[in-house]
Design a protein around this nucleic acid. Structure first.
Lengths: 223, 223
DNA sequence: TAGATTGTTAATCGATTAACAATC
DNA sequence: TAGATTGTTAATCGATTAACAATC
């Protein structure tokens, strides 16, 4: 697979393509043009062809794209077939909710262990995932390949735990704490789930619309 | 406040500014230059000044920005002071985890009610939020101002519930279902929390780095 | 073959960065 | 005042869109 430098925007669109292709498959659609796919996602056909062309030639002139084949290509580009292994740090509310509700396997990750500091849960299993003591973390990382750590610890623990993880060779963190981990000069990959950022963006748009309406109402009152 | 058309990229950066300013406040720092702020966030000073200039003049030549004042401005731009009210649809695992762990008030939202279809929880309270029957939704929306709905229903219910919400005047949805709700021609604001999209982006970067290392290893083996 | 649609090159558009006069 | 740093205009860079020859 050719891996030229692909822009961040393109990468962020890949999972949306994947989801849409899964929806199409479910609906029994096996063939789609960039025109129709673009229409359904709100992208231009050009953008879609440009995006895919970063990785190869997946379509066929005069025909379009084969849905399952394209799906498989994108899954592979995203690394879903690489058998990545992940650990979870912090088995509190968020960690448990994630373990129960999020299907790591479906997205190519195997959650092989979880770590916590509370003696009462250490040594137990939670949904087929063993909960180990944080004291075991370093040893565990020496003995197992861990491609990513899911960070679901309390706010205060976020930075020290991150330091511990990177010091022990973890190079990718899926961060659920509402703490800014991205250090300007670190090579660790950090992907953030910032609930508040998301809600605040929505809040901005709600406020914007509200202001627009108020302005409109004020104008029509004048006339 | 001037509200010219602000690009999406700028809006997405605002919550990060807010968080950083809160961190600075906590650290007792009350003044910062665009240079230093940029350094800490990985942005250029130019970008920071450009971003802020969309909304007004918050700095002072020769001095920089006053941290609490700038924080207040951004909070206001994001609509955090507008007393937005939200309802939650679906009180399953995700809904409960969110109610327990996410402080809506901190971000300017008041969670005034939750809705579910399961008789055994209808009529109860969960963390000060009353759980009502879905049958009451339409009436509730007529009688209360609801600025946003938090969508935490099972996958299958996502589309029908969304239709019901929009039909009853809800114009903003915070979507936690892994379903593509953004219809190309709807005016409803949809903000998605797609866990899988986030993990798959991370997966891409892990795979990319792995490939780069393999290529490097292969090259050095040849020499 | 004729029609459709790709992959790719060129043109446009928008966002980021640089530069600098204004000013605290 | 001199030094620092903003707000803003201009330059650059990158991403999106348009166009079209290639081809199934």
């Amino acid at each position: 697979m050719k891996r030229v430098k692909v822009s961040n925007n393109v990468i962020r669109r890949l999972p949306r393509y994947l989801r849409k292709l899964d929806e199409l498959t479910e609906a029994g659609i096996s063939r789609i043009s960039s025109f129709e796919l673009g229409h359904q996602l709100g992208f231009t056909p050009s953008q879609i062809r440009q995006d895919f062309s970063c990785f190869g030639e997946f379509g066929q002139q005069g025909y379009g794209y084969n849905v399952p084949a394209l799906r498989a290509e994108i899954a592979s580009i995203l690394g879903m077939d690489r058998g990545f292994q992940a650990i979870m740090i912090g088995v509190g509310n968020i960690g448990r909710a994630l373990t129960e509700n999020f299907n790591f396997k479906e997205w190519g990750f195997r959650l092989i262990a979880a770590f916590d500091v509370r003696p009462e849960i250490i040594g137990t299993m939670f949904h087929e995932v063993p909960i180990l003591s944080m004291d075991m973390l370093a040893q565990f990382l020496r003995e197992n390949r861990v491609d990513a750590a899911v960070l679901t610890v309390p706010k205060e623990a976020a930075v020290p735990v991150t330091e511990m993880l990177t010091a022990n060779g973890v190079e990718a963190i899926w961060n659920f704490t509402n703490v800014e981990l991205t250090e300007p000069n670190s090579s660790t990959l950090v992907e953030n789930i910032h609930f508040s950022d998301s809600l605040l963006s929505l809040s901005y748009f709600i406020a914007e619309r509200s202001d627009e309406r108020a302005a409109k109402a004020a104008r029509s009152e004048k006339n």
